[in-house]
Design a protein around this nucleic acid. Structure first.
Lengths: 218, 218
DNA sequence: TGCTGTCCGTCGGCTGGCCGACGTTTTGGC
DNA sequence: GCCAAAACGTCGGCCAGCCGACGGACAGCA
């Protein structure tokens, strides 16, 4: 549930892959390419074929990541955000008017699309809850155990969690700063809540200790 | 644009009123009635016929209003929020599965529905931007001048703005506290940015002074 | 014309966490 | 391998704004 790590998962791909993709054009994006900004006039619908896109808001010398999109994820720029390729990526693209015509003629696509938008909404609401109600440690703890549940592998000694985000990435995802994330993780390591394996993965002995830290001020 | 005061305006009503409402049932809600909570299993689509509903999130001894819905507004409980009637209200109701069948058979409703969800999303994103990037005075200033533009009446000496929210309502809408809102408004009154007419309305000599205060840290 | 409940104004203490700064470690390109 | 660039760790100052508290103002309502 919730969590900013992924606004939209397979769904559409599963339900209506071929039918849906007719009309889309495949497009290659170089690393760092800015696909869309709040000012760009064109609304479009996209599905990631490969690579990684970052969806974010930008404020005064500060950025907030709404989501990272990966293969199979779907997004629509109905909403005023930036979308940027963080690695070379390829995506299926279509502009909204064309897509709307498609919806009108082929109503079978509608429910899938509604699900996607519903998911986007839920995640936005989840982020609002985080920002309004939870403090930074709680947000981070929740982020980590959700990551563990979704991406982690069960070992004898706990969960091995791949962590392919920089601390800056995580901070922006949670609406906090690099420093705060860094301090917290190191503190938790000292407390035995987690261990760093490599730079790019964590070992979490028990998810419970994380869950305990993910509720509003205990 | 944006602003939490109204997540969804007429739209649907204008485009497909009768066609749309077929299948909906009219329902009377007493004051204080809790129509839906994050835990309630049933998703539904509603349109306000009369009265006033409050859409909000609840955290530990704290609430955040996402929106107040009034006549003509549309909402869908796709997303885990509380919906409560703050005055006796009557609404058109339908559950999502039924509505989905409707969409499937009558694709003409789809674009309107997409617009509604798009609007919900935009507003959610707007609130996220507020919480993440703007400080309390900026949020309040923006709220007030948007209210003035939407609801205010032009007079010789400025704008007369009806204010049918308590300070607590406004605070919850902006993600801050009653005290902060109260202090700011009184401070601005001393500075001549606004004057209180009655308890339920403001006089704003010039919207510019508000707009000036609504940008991130000047 | 009192009584009770809701709303508003203001004050001061307290603190989460932002920010700048600076040194260290890791990574990746060539 | 080497070196620049990126990423990480840690510390302390600082402040927006939350929180509790308390008193006044303005309803209804009998």
């Amino acid at each position: 549930m919730h969590a900013h790590a992924h606004l939209a998962r397979p769904d559409l791909a599963a339900t209506a892959h071929e039918a849906l993709l007719a009309g889309f054009t495949l497009r290659e994006l170089p690393k760092g390419y800015l696909l869309s900004t709040p000012e760009s006039p064109h609304n479009q619908v996209l599905m990631v074929h490969s690579g990684r896109l970052r969806v974010y808001l930008a404020g005064d010398n500060r950025e907030l990541n709404l989501s990272f999109l990966e293969a199979g994820d779907i997004y629509t720029t109905h909403t005023p955000t930036y979308v940027e390729a963080v690695v070379p990526s390829s995506i299926w693209l279509i502009d909204t008017p064309t897509f709307a015509r498609k919806l009108a003629t082929d109503p079978s696509v509608t429910p899938a699309m509604m699900r996607v938008m519903g998911r986007l909404l839920s995640n936005a609401v989840g982020l609002i809850e985080d920002l309004a109600f939870r403090e930074v440690p709680a947000r981070l703890a929740r982020f980590l155990w959700q990551l563990a549940e979704r991406r982690g592998h069960r070992l004898e000694h706990g969960w091995l969690v791949p962590l392919d985000f920089s601390m800056q990435d995580i901070a922006s995802l949670l609406g906090t700063t690099r420093q705060s994330v860094s301090s917290l993780i190191n503190q938790w390591e000292r407390e035995g809540v987690l261990q760093r394996q490599s730079r790019r993965s964590l070992l979490v002995p028990s998810l419970d200790s994380l869950k305990a830290r993910s509720s509003p001020v205990p």
